[in-house]
Write a protein that binds this DNA or RNA. Structure first.
Lengths: 211, 211
DNA sequence: GTATCATAAATTGGCGCCAATTTTGGATAC
DNA sequence: GTATCCAAAATTGGCGCCAATTTATGATAC
């Protein structure tokens, strides 16, 4: 009864941070929006202590991935259309702003590295979990932004990405859309190879807004 | 001995969040970079319990305002030149990106409100604490960004502002520089009144980079 | 006089209990 | 049959103790 919302137990080492584990489960869709995260359940599922759980929940609440209701507990945020739109807008601003620098800085090695990560994403599309797909996508975009030369910006975009990912379903609604994303990655790399900053920026914009 | 680093005790209600109190003291310069934040001291200074202190320290560590060294404790981050530069760059990107929208959206009432906040900042320049100055400045920039229509962006900028503020001294080195900031605020408002988006964006850029 | 080591003090950090609040379930009245 | 109220179970959340580690202190040897 207590484990009702968890069907698959994972043998997790207490060493690895609980916050990341819960985060991953939210991103992967294992913990649906609206779900109440009961402390006893989390304690058992991630094989950790009560303070560990509470620290993790507090961190996730700070990141606004879960909401804390006093004396009621923590629950996964419902997807917020406005917020998702605004975060996308911010991503467009930040990622297109460094598009020029990226195109300038990218060496042949960088392009090869990007190609490899894009392929990883494609493979995850075929036979991978939702989480693997998410992480492959993240790795590609991080590597891309890294060429912008602003490390803080890389971390910032990585961070705000998580803010709307409480709705992984609405993000990648269909398999067709995911495959389209994969193709867009390669188109973006092509634009970098041809040193076409304007095209790369426009592709980035469309890729984020998914139009 | 235990209260060595704190010369002025403040009678703080336990209700108000300890995290904000510590944050304010760091921003105001009361807690200098490098200072080790001993849990017993904080406990006494903010008149709160041990778990309160630890939660606050964990949150500040997440925000990268303090660093956590296992079995050693938490200390205020040393100012990081590279990071400060990168954060400024990000702020320029974000705030100039919505400059056009701000100029378009600003009504006569909005301009009046901005003028009032700019005056508040000027007053704080004359006779106000470092913290009051910081908050007056923050209020002005928040009101400004609000006109951009992207609430998430307002919160994001407010958040990343805190990331480099562990060196409040290096930010506003001289009184002359602070007074210059006050004048720039009014120049920015003037640009908005004249609906000159390009000028407003450029003023914003210079204001952030402080050149 | 200085370096080294052992011992004591201080500090962090893990863990668990118990009170306060909320939710659930059932009994009773209408 | 339905609504209301009361009691029991469950859940959150505040608080403090104690072990592990680190730092400071002082004694001893060279």
């Amino acid at each position: 009864m207590a484990d009702a919302i968890f069907d698959s137990r994972v043998e997790a080492s207490a060493a690895r941070d609980v916050t990341d584990l819960i985060l991953q489960d939210i991103l992967a869709g294992a913990l649906m929006p609206g779900t109440w995260l009961k402390q006893v359940d989390l304690e058992r599922r991630y094989n950790c202590t009560r303070p560990d759980v509470r620290r993790a929940l507090d961190r996730l609440a700070q990141k606004r991935l879960v909401e804390h209701v006093p004396n009621r507990g923590y629950h996964v945020y419902e997807p917020d259309g406005r917020r998702a739109r605004e975060v996308s807008e911010i991503r467009v601003i930040l990622e297109t702003a460094v598009a020029g620098t990226i195109v300038q800085n990218a060496s042949a090695d960088d392009v090869r590295a990007l190609r490899k990560l894009a392929k990883h994403f494609d493979e995850a599309t075929l036979n991978g979990t939702m989480l693997e797909l998410y992480e492959a996508n993240l790795a590609f975009h991080r590597q891309l932004l890294m060429l912008g030369g602003n490390i803080e910006l890389v971390d910032l975009v990585t961070e705000i990405r998580q803010r709307t990912s409480s709705a992984p379903v609405s993000q990648w609604r269909t398999r067709a859309r995911v495959e389209q994303s994969g193709r867009e990655h390669h188109m973006m790399i092509d634009a970098i190879e041809h040193r076409d900053g304007t095209l790369f920026a426009e592709l980035t914009r469309q890729h984020i807004l998914q139009k």
